[in-house]
Protein backbone atom coordinates (compact mmCIF):
# COMPACT_ATOMS: atom_id res chain seq x y z
CA UNK A 1 0.00 0.00 0.00
CA UNK A 2 2.79 2.41 0.98
CA UNK A 3 4.62 1.50 -2.24
CA UNK A 4 1.58 2.33 -4.34
CA UNK A 5 1.22 5.65 -2.49
CA UNK A 6 4.87 6.61 -3.10
CA UNK A 7 4.50 5.72 -6.80
CA UNK A 8 1.40 7.90 -7.12
CA UNK A 9 3.18 10.73 -5.32
CA UNK A 10 6.14 10.53 -7.73
CA UNK A 11 3.84 10.53 -10.76
CA UNK A 12 1.90 13.50 -9.40
CA UNK A 13 5.13 15.42 -8.78
CA UNK A 14 6.29 14.72 -12.33
CA UNK A 15 2.96 15.89 -13.74
CA UNK A 16 3.20 19.04 -11.61
CA UNK A 17 6.67 19.67 -13.04
CA UNK A 18 5.28 19.48 -16.57
CA UNK A 19 2.42 21.89 -15.84
CA UNK A 20 4.31 25.15 -16.54
CA UNK A 21 5.38 23.73 -19.88
CA UNK A 22 1.76 23.44 -20.96
CA UNK A 23 0.16 26.43 -19.23
CA UNK A 24 2.76 29.20 -19.30
CA UNK A 25 4.83 28.64 -22.43
CA UNK A 26 3.13 30.25 -25.40
CA UNK A 27 3.99 29.11 -28.90
CA UNK A 28 6.90 30.99 -30.38
CA UNK A 29 6.43 32.81 -33.64
CA UNK A 30 10.07 33.29 -34.60
CA UNK A 31 13.33 31.41 -34.42
CA UNK A 32 15.95 31.98 -31.76
CA UNK A 33 19.25 33.48 -32.88
CA UNK A 34 21.24 30.26 -33.26
CA UNK A 35 18.55 28.61 -35.37
CA UNK A 36 18.12 31.82 -37.35
CA UNK A 37 21.83 31.75 -38.22
CA UNK A 38 21.75 28.05 -39.14
CA UNK A 39 18.71 28.53 -41.38
CA UNK A 40 19.81 31.70 -43.17
CA UNK A 41 23.57 31.15 -43.39
CA UNK A 42 23.54 27.35 -43.80
CA UNK A 43 22.60 27.20 -47.50
CA UNK A 44 25.16 29.87 -48.42
CA UNK A 45 28.01 28.62 -46.26
CA UNK A 46 27.65 24.88 -46.75
CA UNK A 47 25.58 24.47 -49.92
CA UNK A 48 23.32 21.82 -48.38
CA UNK A 49 19.64 21.86 -49.30
CA UNK A 50 18.60 19.82 -46.25
CA UNK A 51 19.43 22.01 -43.28
CA UNK A 52 18.91 19.26 -40.70
CA UNK A 53 21.78 17.44 -42.40
CA UNK A 54 23.90 20.60 -42.31
CA UNK A 55 23.30 20.88 -38.56
CA UNK A 56 24.04 17.20 -37.90
CA UNK A 57 27.13 16.83 -40.07
CA UNK A 58 28.86 20.20 -39.81
CA UNK A 59 27.47 22.65 -37.25
CA UNK A 60 27.01 19.98 -34.57
CA UNK A 61 29.47 17.48 -36.07
CA UNK A 62 31.25 16.90 -32.78
CA UNK A 63 27.94 15.88 -31.17
CA UNK A 64 27.37 13.35 -33.94
CA UNK A 65 30.86 11.95 -33.42
CA UNK A 66 30.02 11.57 -29.73
CA UNK A 67 26.72 9.84 -30.50
CA UNK A 68 28.49 7.39 -32.80
CA UNK A 69 30.97 6.64 -30.02
CA UNK A 70 28.01 5.95 -27.67
CA UNK A 71 26.55 3.57 -30.28
CA UNK A 72 29.92 1.83 -30.58
CA UNK A 73 30.22 1.47 -26.79
CA UNK A 74 26.70 -0.01 -26.59
CA UNK A 75 27.58 -2.53 -29.33
CA UNK A 76 30.80 -3.44 -27.50
CA UNK A 77 28.84 -3.86 -24.27
CA UNK A 78 26.37 -6.23 -25.95
CA UNK A 79 29.26 -8.28 -27.35
CA UNK A 80 30.90 -8.34 -23.92
CA UNK A 81 27.75 -9.53 -22.15
CA UNK A 82 26.97 -12.27 -24.69
CA UNK A 83 30.50 -13.61 -25.03
CA UNK A 84 30.29 -16.60 -22.69
CA UNK A 85 28.28 -19.58 -23.95
CA UNK A 86 25.71 -20.99 -21.55
CA UNK A 87 25.59 -24.65 -20.54
CA UNK A 88 23.57 -25.59 -23.58
CA UNK A 89 25.94 -26.57 -26.38
CA UNK A 90 23.66 -27.98 -29.07
CA UNK A 91 21.56 -25.48 -30.95
CA UNK A 92 17.83 -26.10 -31.01
CA UNK A 93 16.62 -27.63 -34.28
CA UNK A 94 15.73 -24.71 -36.45
CA UNK A 95 12.83 -24.49 -38.84
CA UNK A 96 13.97 -23.51 -42.30
CA UNK A 97 12.21 -20.58 -43.90
CA UNK A 98 9.39 -20.99 -46.37
CA UNK A 99 9.63 -20.90 -50.16
CA UNK A 100 7.68 -17.63 -50.40
CA UNK A 101 9.98 -15.83 -47.94
CA UNK A 102 13.12 -17.05 -49.70
CA UNK A 103 11.96 -16.05 -53.20
CA UNK A 104 10.60 -12.72 -52.00
CA UNK A 105 13.74 -11.84 -50.08
CA UNK A 106 15.98 -12.74 -53.07
CA UNK A 107 14.00 -10.14 -54.99
CA UNK A 108 13.86 -7.52 -52.23
CA UNK A 109 17.37 -7.57 -50.73
CA UNK A 110 19.17 -5.91 -53.70
CA UNK A 111 16.44 -3.27 -53.91
CA UNK A 112 16.72 -2.55 -50.18
CA UNK A 113 20.50 -2.21 -50.38
CA UNK A 114 20.11 0.15 -53.35
CA UNK A 115 17.51 2.19 -51.43
CA UNK A 116 19.73 2.42 -48.36
CA UNK A 117 22.69 3.64 -50.43
CA UNK A 118 20.40 6.14 -52.17
CA UNK A 119 19.17 7.50 -48.83
CA UNK A 120 22.60 8.11 -47.37
CA UNK A 121 24.23 9.50 -50.50
CA UNK A 122 21.34 11.97 -51.01
CA UNK A 123 21.22 13.03 -47.35
CA UNK A 124 22.17 16.63 -48.18
CA UNK A 125 19.37 17.01 -50.76
CA UNK A 126 16.31 15.08 -49.52
CA UNK A 127 15.02 13.95 -46.12
CA UNK A 128 17.15 11.13 -44.85
CA UNK A 129 20.81 10.53 -44.35
CA UNK A 130 23.38 8.29 -42.76
CA UNK A 131 21.34 7.05 -39.83
CA UNK A 132 18.23 6.22 -41.87
CA UNK A 133 20.25 4.70 -44.72
CA UNK A 134 22.23 2.57 -42.28
CA UNK A 135 19.00 1.28 -40.79
CA UNK A 136 17.63 0.40 -44.25
CA UNK A 137 20.86 -1.55 -44.92
CA UNK A 138 20.31 -3.32 -41.59
CA UNK A 139 16.77 -4.23 -42.58
CA UNK A 140 18.14 -5.81 -45.80
CA UNK A 141 20.55 -7.83 -43.65
CA UNK A 142 17.66 -8.74 -41.33
CA UNK A 143 15.63 -10.07 -44.26
CA UNK A 144 18.66 -12.14 -45.26
CA UNK A 145 18.93 -13.50 -41.71
CA UNK A 146 15.24 -14.45 -41.70
CA UNK A 147 15.34 -16.20 -45.07
CA UNK A 148 18.66 -18.05 -44.55
CA UNK A 149 18.52 -19.30 -40.97
CA UNK A 150 21.77 -21.27 -41.31
CA UNK A 151 23.92 -18.54 -42.84
CA UNK A 152 26.11 -16.35 -40.63
CA UNK A 153 27.57 -12.94 -41.29
CA UNK A 154 31.34 -12.82 -41.21
CA UNK A 155 31.99 -11.14 -37.86
CA UNK A 156 35.50 -10.03 -38.74
CA UNK A 157 34.38 -8.43 -42.01
CA UNK A 158 31.64 -6.29 -40.44
CA UNK A 159 33.99 -5.23 -37.63
CA UNK A 160 36.77 -4.30 -40.06
CA UNK A 161 34.42 -2.27 -42.28
CA UNK A 162 33.03 -0.50 -39.21
CA UNK A 163 36.47 0.33 -37.78
CA UNK A 164 37.81 1.52 -41.14
CA UNK A 165 34.84 3.83 -41.65
CA UNK A 166 35.29 5.18 -38.13
CA UNK A 167 38.96 5.93 -38.89
CA UNK A 168 37.98 7.63 -42.17
CA UNK A 169 35.43 9.75 -40.29
CA UNK A 170 38.15 11.03 -37.98
CA UNK A 171 40.60 11.57 -40.88
CA UNK A 172 38.03 13.72 -42.70
CA UNK A 173 37.45 15.66 -39.50
CA UNK A 174 41.17 16.35 -39.17
CA UNK A 175 41.36 17.31 -42.88
CA UNK A 176 38.70 19.92 -42.15
CA UNK A 177 40.85 21.18 -39.26
CA UNK A 178 43.88 21.55 -41.55
CA UNK A 179 42.33 22.72 -44.83
CA UNK A 180 39.22 24.62 -43.65
CA UNK A 181 37.82 26.35 -40.59
CA UNK A 182 37.76 23.65 -37.94
CA UNK A 183 37.28 20.03 -36.91
CA UNK A 184 34.70 18.30 -39.18
CA UNK A 185 34.36 21.42 -41.34
CA UNK A 186 33.04 20.15 -44.67
CA UNK A 187 34.15 23.09 -46.79
CA UNK A 188 37.58 21.79 -47.82
CA UNK A 189 35.97 20.38 -50.98
CA UNK A 190 34.23 22.49 -53.62
CA UNK A 191 30.72 23.54 -52.63
CA UNK A 192 29.46 23.12 -56.19
CA UNK A 193 25.99 23.92 -57.43
CA UNK A 194 23.18 23.36 -54.94
CA UNK A 195 20.96 20.42 -55.82
CA UNK A 196 23.64 18.28 -57.46
CA UNK A 197 24.75 14.96 -55.98
CA UNK A 198 28.39 16.11 -55.79
CA UNK A 199 27.87 19.36 -53.94
CA UNK A 200 27.90 20.72 -50.41
CA UNK A 201 31.58 19.94 -49.88
CA UNK A 202 32.35 16.82 -47.88
CA UNK A 203 28.83 16.38 -46.43
CA UNK A 204 27.84 13.44 -48.74
CA UNK A 205 31.13 11.66 -47.98
CA UNK A 206 30.81 12.12 -44.22
CA UNK A 207 27.17 11.01 -44.23
CA UNK A 208 27.97 7.93 -46.36
CA UNK A 209 30.67 6.97 -43.87
CA UNK A 210 28.22 7.45 -40.99
CA UNK A 211 25.67 5.31 -42.86
CA UNK A 212 28.09 2.44 -43.41
CA UNK A 213 29.28 2.60 -39.81
CA UNK A 214 25.78 2.69 -38.29
CA UNK A 215 24.63 -0.13 -40.60
CA UNK A 216 27.53 -2.40 -39.71
CA UNK A 217 27.15 -1.71 -36.00
CA UNK A 218 23.44 -2.54 -36.02
CA UNK A 219 24.07 -5.68 -38.12
CA UNK A 220 26.63 -6.71 -35.50
CA UNK A 221 24.09 -6.16 -32.67
CA UNK A 222 21.41 -8.21 -34.49
CA UNK A 223 23.88 -10.99 -35.30
CA UNK A 224 25.00 -11.23 -31.68
CA UNK A 225 21.39 -11.35 -30.48
CA UNK A 226 20.40 -13.93 -33.09
CA UNK A 227 23.06 -16.57 -32.42
CA UNK A 228 21.29 -19.61 -31.04
CA UNK A 229 24.21 -21.65 -29.74
CA UNK A 230 25.53 -18.95 -27.43
Amino acid sequence: MAKRFITLLLIALLAYMFLPFIVEVDETSQLNRVAEKYVTAGPLELGAANLVTAVIVTYRGLDTLGEIVVLFIAAVGIGFLLRKPSKKKIAAPKRSSSEILRTGSDFLIPLLILFGVYIFTHGHLTPGGGFQGGVVLTSAALLFMLSNTEARFNKQLTEVIESVSGIFYLIIGILGLILAGGFLDSRFLQLGEMGRLFSAGAIPIIYSIIGIKVGMELIGILEKLRKEEI
Binding site: Y38, I56, E217
Partner: peptide
Protein backbone atom coordinates in the same frame (compact mmCIF):
# COMPACT_ATOMS: atom_id res chain seq x y z
CA UNK B 1 14.00 25.20 -36.00
CA UNK B 2 16.31 22.42 -37.34
CA UNK B 3 18.24 21.86 -34.09
CA UNK B 4 15.61 19.80 -32.15
CA UNK B 5 15.07 17.60 -35.23
CA UNK B 6 18.81 16.97 -35.49
CA UNK B 7 19.11 16.14 -31.79
CA UNK B 8 16.13 13.77 -31.80
CA UNK B 9 17.34 12.03 -34.97
CA UNK B 10 20.54 10.91 -33.26
CA UNK B 11 18.76 10.28 -29.95
CA UNK B 12 16.45 7.71 -31.61
CA UNK B 13 19.45 5.69 -32.85
CA UNK B 14 21.10 5.85 -29.42
CA UNK B 15 17.77 4.78 -27.87
CA UNK B 16 17.77 1.62 -29.98
CA UNK B 17 21.32 0.74 -28.86
Amino acid sequence: DPVPSALVLTAIVIGLA
